[in-house]
Amino acid sequence: MIFKNLNVNIMRGQVTAIMGPSGTGKTTLLRLITRQLLPDKGVILIDGQDISQLSTKELYQLRKRFGMLFQNGALLTDLNVFENVAFPLREHTDLPDRLIRHIVLTKLHAVGLRGAADMMPEELSGGMARRVALARAMVMDPEIIIYDEPFVGLDPISMGVIVRLVRRMNDALGISSIVVSHDVQEINTVADCSYLISDGHVAAFGRPDELHKAQSEIVRQFMHGMADGPVPFHFAAPDYTEQLLGRDGG
């Protein structure tokens, strides 16, 4: 069992952060929210609708209201930047090419990569790929954008750009954002509300400044980046001395 008694509310129009130590199931939670996985127990409601009860057609209708930014961008490697962003429009609409071009260039301009429209995904840096993926996630004007570890592996400049874009897109387009991350500093600058998940349940939630002041040991360890605490530094292992002396049977 990954989660027990987990209760998370995502408020409309807000940036909600989901944080937690590595391996705590943050990405699994995203897959549950988007029904890439089905829960054994419990319900996931979107606008009061239990998504596990949806037919495939209804699920796809719901997903058209979502945009998702994957950790690695997940750009289609056989299409250039322009076509990657245009992909959902070409698949879901009959818009004329001129209008598609207009929309795609607008979205690329918003992420600062209009000049990279003709580049192929392998020519992009990690930060650029994530910005293109963000443009693609926005191109259908979704109501909810989900970011899976958007800051991982980025240099400070790219990270700053993504942080600003998350906030700006949320406010400018009036959407709801869910950001899964364990980058405390960055997420605290954009989130309206943060959930800290540990050991399968919500360890704490509230505004980032509230979490910083929390007295719970797990929250303090996570928010202040302490190496040891409720989440131990050492993974479970046999006695160190016994193992070095070869008496552990290994």
Binding site: T34, Q36, L76
Partner: peptide
């Protein structure tokens, strides 16, 4: 296989595009 490993198929699913058909 590489499209799967790099989440391209999952990305299509999330764009409401059936990767089997596409």
């Amino acid at each position: 296989g590489l499209m799967k490993a790099t989440d391209q198929l999952s990305a299509m699913e999330m764009m409401a595009i059936n990767p089997i058909n596409r």
